[in-house]
Each structure stands twice: as C-alpha cells, then as structure tokens.
Measured scan of single mutants.
Amino acid sequence: HNGKLCKLKGIAPLQLGKCNITGWLLGNPECDSLLPARSWSYIVETPNSENGACYPGDLIDYEELREQLSSVSSLERFEIFPKESSWPNHTFNGVTVSCSHRGKSSFYRNLLWLTKKGDSYPKLTNSYVNNKGKEVLVLWGVHHPSSSDEQQSLYSNGNAYVSVASSNYNRRFTPEIAARPKVRDQHGRMNYYWTLLEPGDTIIFEATGNLIAPWYAFALSRGFESGIITSNASMHECNTKCQTPQGAINSNLPFQNIHPVTIGECPKYVRSTKLRMVTGLRNIPSIQYRGLFGAIAGFIEGGWTGMIDGWYGYHHQNEQGSGYAADQKSTQNAINGITNKVNSVIEKMNTQFTAVGKEFNNLEKRMENLNKKVDDGFLDIWTYNAELLVLLENERTLDFHDLNVKNLYEKVKSQLKNNAKEIGNGCFEFYHKCDNECMESVRNGTYDYPKYSEESKLNREKIDGVKLESMGVYQILAIYSTVASSLVLLVSLGAISFWMCSNGSLQCRICI
C-alpha cells in the first residue's frame, strides 16, 4: 500500500475532517465546509473527530445509520420544511452556546429548535410527501429539559409530546424532565432520530412541544462500492481501485494482509504473511546465498510486491572476458508455465471484495464479540484455502523447474562428451581453451567436438587428477538461474548478450 488516501476510480472521497457522521448530518456549525458535499467514492472519518452533536445527546440507531450510509455515493440536500413558512405559530430561531460559531450562539444547520411564540405553543402538524424518486433521509430531535421551569419557559406545556409517523415508522416521544450533570454547559439533553422515507411515502410530524424540527433532508443515491473508513492518512493526487484505512492498494494479487476493511475492488484479506509461490528452483544453499535460486511470486499485497520470474541462460568467462545470454527457448517455456500457473491461482482465488467494518453500540458488546468470532472463522478458512492451494502448486513448480534445468544440462553434456569433466555440482571442467566463438557454439548447439578432442585428450593426460582450476583450465557451469522482474525479464530476452569482463582471468566458464 502507499499510505495515502486516493480517488477511487477517479472519484474523490468525502473527508469529514474534524467532524464525524453525526456532526455532518445534523449540521454542526463547525462542519459548515461539508454542506456543499454532493457525491463521493467513500467517506473518511478520523479516529478522534471532535465535532459531532454540539448540544449533548445521542443519535439513536447511529450504527444502523452508518451502515445505511456505507452504500450511499451521492445525496441532494434540500429544504424539507421551509423555515419561514412551515411554522407560522412558533418561534424557530432557537440557539445555544453549546453550538457556538465564530463566538456567537448558533444551532444545527439542518434542524430548527421550535419554541413557544408569545406565551403559547399551539399543537403543530406538518407533513412531507417524498417526490424525489429515491429514498429521503429525514432527521429530527426531541429536547429533554433539566427542570419543569425550563419546560414551561420554552414550550408552555408541561405534558408535551412529539409524534412522527410514516408508512414504515411510527413513534411517540415524551420529554424526560430530570436533573443531569452539566455537559457542554447544558443540564438538558437532546436525542436525535432518523428514518428513511421511501419514494411516494408521507411523513407526518405532530407536537405540542420539545420538537427539534427537520429543516433540511437528504435524497440518497446508492453506490455499492462506497463505504466509510476511519483513517488518519492524508489525501493525495492519486487514483486506485482499492482503498484501505492504511493506504491505497493497486494490485491484481488475490490476497492482502494490510487491513480487513477495504473499499472498492480489493484482494481478499488473509492473516498469512508467507503466502508465496515459487518460480525458481529448489533451494541450493551456495546459490541461494548469491540470490540466484528460489525466486518467488508473492500473492499477498503487503507481504511480497508483485511476481518475480526466474529465467535460464548461459554465463561464460574466458580470456576475452565474461558474458550472459538467455536461453530463449527454455526461458519462454518457463515463463509460459509460470504465467499459466499464476493465472490459474488468481482465477481460482481472485474475487474482488469490498469489506466494511460493522458498528455496534456499547450495549451490543456481546453481539460485536460474536460477530468478530464469526469473521475470524471465515478469515481462517480463507487463509487455509489460500495456503493449501499455493503449497500444492509450489511442489509442481519445483518439479517443473528441475526438468527444465536438467534438459539444459543434458544438452551441454551431450555436446562436450569427454572434452570436459562433470564435477558433480552442476559444473563441467573443460580440457581445452574455449574462446567466445567456442562458447557461442555450446550455447547454440553447434559445438565442434572433433575440433577440440585432441587438445582435450592431451590435457587429460597431463592433469592426472590435479585440480583443474589450479592448472588454468576452464570450467563450464551447467545450471544457472538469475532473477529478474517481469519487465526486466522481457528486456533481457530482447538482448543477445551483455558482457562482464574479468581482467586477466584465465578461467573459461559457460553457465546455464
């Protein structure tokens, strides 16, 4: 991952900044910058967002509201009850120091605090018919004063009620008058409520006091790749198909172990950190130390980045220098085999997901714990399936590479015959000098055995068991695999060879 928040398929997220979902939807004055928000790819909250409900109280069923919003990608904020005409018999300019803005008392931008007009609070009834052709999110509140005197001074009615009804919602609220500790300079409380109004449905408000009335509502448009994440990451000019709280993932790998919460087309989250597919040879310690064997393909974004291909070729060293050249036929066979294998694994496992966190309130801790156990169970199954699949494929890959290298080895052996000696570690020792032209003939299969047989015969008789390297004779190393990324691999195959001279070296080696 890149540690950044990015656009998702070209669409920017909605960053709530210092506000949370509650503050944004109710219209906390400190969240005025969010009022123009219309569309987004996903919503970003920060872990310690401080601006929620400015007048103390709870947004009821907040967790369910977050779940609903996680599939919303755009909205239209509109005046559901026009301020100047909807409440002619009531005062609608209630403000509070708890919702101060720029040093002055204020109130929510989407709600109206209705109080008595003169000395009376006549029963009010108002309704709205949803003609938007889509779901409408309606929010309101109920004020709970701290004393009967406060109730009387604001609403005149000691036994007030609030009723809200639609086809799918029907509740009646009565204020709970009680002494409470002071929070944000208030002994009173406000509880906030919401409902989704279906197209064509009607919502009716009736009250004799204590109503925090809707002013603006939201017509919602769903987008199934949307979601809500909690993150401290910063926004950058970048684009992605998959976003996590820790950063964007741009990967076609089937798995990731970065974060379980994802938005967009994302690899499946697994616990494993070692889900690797081999593309090189079986481990040979001396070669492995030099980083030549054991190439791997990573299938977990965050564990290993991208696929690494092994390729086969020849390396030689003689009086004229040293050089490398790919054996294109065996390399292409290996590439085709690995590509098919990788595609097979991805096809089997690479279903892209959006995974969002589930919200539970403080009273639902047991449910949250149960949900976590269920999620953990599914996660263990996914991890096991992934590891088992790759384990089985790896064994076949190792066998496949062994065969490829063996074929190259036999190709060289059949040409050199007794003009060189096998020394048991995949290397041959020449009994004759071999210049670049000679080396090329070994690589392309045109090695002239009779041409060098007499010199080889004489050297075999002279050496008589002495280690060949100390006599200045020449080696050919018969097994060799270097490691390159897919891009470098293609470039390498396009070149005939490249040279690395070893000044004054008397050794001649050709490596497979």
Rank of each mutant, 00 (worst) to 15 (best):
S453L: 15
Y289L: 12
S441G: 05
S486T: 14
I284N: 12
F498A: 11
S492T: 12
I287S: 00
Y312A: 01
G303V: 02
A326I: 07
V483G: 02
D380L: 02
Q332L: 09
I496E: 00
D375F: 10
N318C: 04
I300K: 01
G313P: 05
E368Q: 15
N343G: 02
V405T: 03
D380A: 12
G280Q: 06
E437L: 12
E395L: 06
E319Y: 10
R271N: 08
D464F: 11
T331Y: 03
K433C: 08
E429S: 11
G303I: 01
E410A: 09
I381Y: 04
G298Q: 06
L370A: 08
M500I: 14
M439V: 10
N385H: 10
K348R: 13
M500N: 10
T244Y: 02
C238D: 08
T354G: 06
Y447V: 02
K462P: 11
A297N: 03
G310K: 05
N418R: 09
K348T: 12
G445S: 09
I512T: 09
P245Y: 10
L388A: 01
S251E: 08
G264W: 09
L292Q: 01
T244C: 07
I258Q: 04
K373I: 07
A297H: 10
S344W: 07
E455Q: 12
Q317C: 11
Y324S: 01
S481T: 09
D399N: 13
N252D: 15
T339W: 01
H401L: 04
Y449W: 08
C242M: 04
G310C: 00
Q507A: 09
S502C: 01
H432Y: 15
R366H: 09
D309I: 05
F299L: 10
D399Q: 07
N425G: 03
G426M: 10
I335R: 00
S330I: 05
N318Y: 05
N333P: 00
G472M: 04
H432E: 05
D309F: 09
C238I: 05
G445A: 14
S251C: 04
N283Q: 09
S344V: 11
E387F: 07
C266R: 07
L403A: 12
A248W: 05
